[in-house]
Design a protein around this nucleic acid. Structure first.
Lengths: 218, 218
DNA sequence: AAATCCATTCTTGTATACAAAAAATTTGAC
DNA sequence: GTCAAATTTTTTGTATACAAGAATGGATTT
C-alpha cells in the first residue's frame, strides 16, 4: 500500500500548520507551496483536498484555502467526542481484551511511568498515544479503531499542550492504572467512566488549554 | 455554501454506486466518468478524492480506484459505532434539549407514524432520518452532530433495506416514543440505552437480511 | 477629498498535453 | 503448442496552458 507524493505533501503541510509556520487564517498559496515542494500545482491541490476533508483547512470557492484552527468552543466539543469515544472503547475492551494485550498495556504504561520519572515529556506523550491506540485495537472493532485514531491524530497538537501542566503526567499514569484495573476486573462501565474523565477537558485543564490558545487566536 | 462542480460529481458518483450502476469491485474509469459528465479528468479526480477519503471507494496506487462496499464484518462494526454514537446523543440531549425541540421531535415521530399507517416506506424512512438528525442537533455539540450525520449518511443505503422487515416500521415508531419519554423525564442513561438498542436492532436485522440474500447474490 | 467605476492583475478552476508505470498482446523460442 | 520475453497499449500521475472570477489600484467624477 504505497502512498503517493500528494500524501507526503499533505503530511508535510499539516506539519507546517502544527509547527506554526502557517497560522490560523493564513491562505495556503498553491504556487508558493508548489515552489516549496518543487512540484506543479496539481499534486499540491490534491494534498489540499485531503486537508480540507480532514477539516484542518477551509476552502472558500474561488478564493483559496485557509488555515482553520478550531476555536475554543469547537475544541471543547472535539474533546467531548473523544472522551465519549474512549469511554466506548474502554467499555468494549473490558469484555473483549486478551490477556496478552492487557499485559502489553501494562508494559506501555510502565514506560509512561519511566518517562514521567525522567521528566521526559516527549517520551510520556509518545507512550501515552501508544497506550490509547492499543486500547482502541482491543475493542475488536476495526472501524471504531480507525475513527478513534483519526480524532486522536486531529487533537494531537492540543493534547500535547496539556502535559505542561505540573503534575499532569504523573496523574495521567495513575489514571491509566485505574483504567487497567477496571478493565482487568471486567468492569466495562467503570473503565468507560474512568476513560471519559481521563480525556474530558475540565477545570484546571480547561483554563490551561484556553490560555494556551490565546496567542494562536491573534 | 455549495462548492463546485467536483462536489456535485462526487454526489452523483456516490448515487451511481448506491443505485447499483457500479458494483463492488468495479473500477471507476476516469475517462469514462469524464465523458459521462462532460468534463475533463481533473474534476473527476477531485471528486474521486472525496470518495476515497469518505471510504466509499479504495485507491490502489497506479492501478485506479475501485468500489469498496463494506463486507458483513465491517458493516456490523459500523452499526455498532452508530449505535454507540446515538447513545451518546441521547444521553447528552436528555440534559440539553429545549422544550421546543422536544415538541419538534414528537411532531416528526407523528409523521413517522402517519407514514407507517399508510404503508409509506419511503416516507417513514425519510422522517426517520430527520428524527435522528434533529436529535443529533440537540446534543449542543456541533462537532458530534457532524460526525453522526457523516456516519448516518454512509449507512443510509443499508438502513433502508431493514424496513422491509414486516412490522419493523411500527416497532421503530414505538421505540422512538420510548426514547422521547426517557428524554423528557431527563433520564439520559435510559435514553442512551434505548437508542443503542434501537440502532443495534437495525444492524442485526440488516445482517440477517443480507445473509439470507447471500445465496442469491452468488 | 471621497467614492465609484473600470481596467489590470492575481488566483483559482478546468482542460489538455506529456511522462511513467502497469496491463495486455504479440512474437519468438523451445 | 506453450511459456516467456518484449513491445504495444492503456491508464494513472504530473506538468502546463488556458479560462473565469475575485481583488486591487488608479483614474475620473461628484
Amino acid at each position: 500500500m504505497e502512498r503517493k507524493r500528494a500524501d507526503l505533501i499533505a503530511d508535510a503541510i499539516e506539519e507546517l500548520i502544527f509547527d506554526g509556520t502557517f497560522e490560523d487564517g493564513d491562505r495556503l498559496d498553491e504556487v508558493q507551496l508548489a515552489e516549496r515542494f518543487s512540484v506543479s500545482r496539481t499534486p499540491i491541490r490534491e494534498a489540499l483536498q485531503r486537508l480540507i476533508l480532514s477539516g484542518l483547512v477551509e476552502q472558500i470557492p474561488r478564493r483559496g484555502v485557509f488555515v482553520r484552527q478550531p476555536g475554543p468552543v469547537e475544541l471543547i466539543e472535539m474533546f467531548e467526542v473523544m472522551a465519549e469515544l474512549e469511554a466506548i472503547c474502554g467499555r468494549l475492551a473490558a469484555s473483549r481484551i486478551s490477556d496478552k494485550a492487557l499485559a502489553d498495556l501494562r508494559a506501555i504504561n510502565d514506560r509512561c511511568r519511566t518517562a514521567t520519572e525522567a521528566q521526559d515529556a516527549d517520551g510520556n506523550y509518545h507512550q501515552n498515544d501508544i497506550f490509547h491506540a492499543t486500547l482502541y485495537a482491543q475493542t475488536g472493532n476495526a472501524f471504531l479503531e480507525q475513527e478513534c485514531l483519526r480524532l486522536q491524530r486531529r487533537l494531537r497538537p492540543f493534547r500535547r499542550l496539556q502535559l505542561r501542566w505540573r503534575g499532569r503526567m504523573a496523574q495521567s499514569v495513575a489514571e491509566h492504572d485505574a483504567i487497567l484495573a477496571a478493565i482487568e476486573s471486567g468492569d466495562g462501565a467503570q473503565a468507560g467512566n474512568l476513560l471519559r474523565q481521563h480525556v474530558t477537558v475540565q477545570g484546571e485543564k480547561f483554563h490551561r488549554l484556553m490560555s494556551s490558545l490565546k496567542p494562536a487566536a491573534e
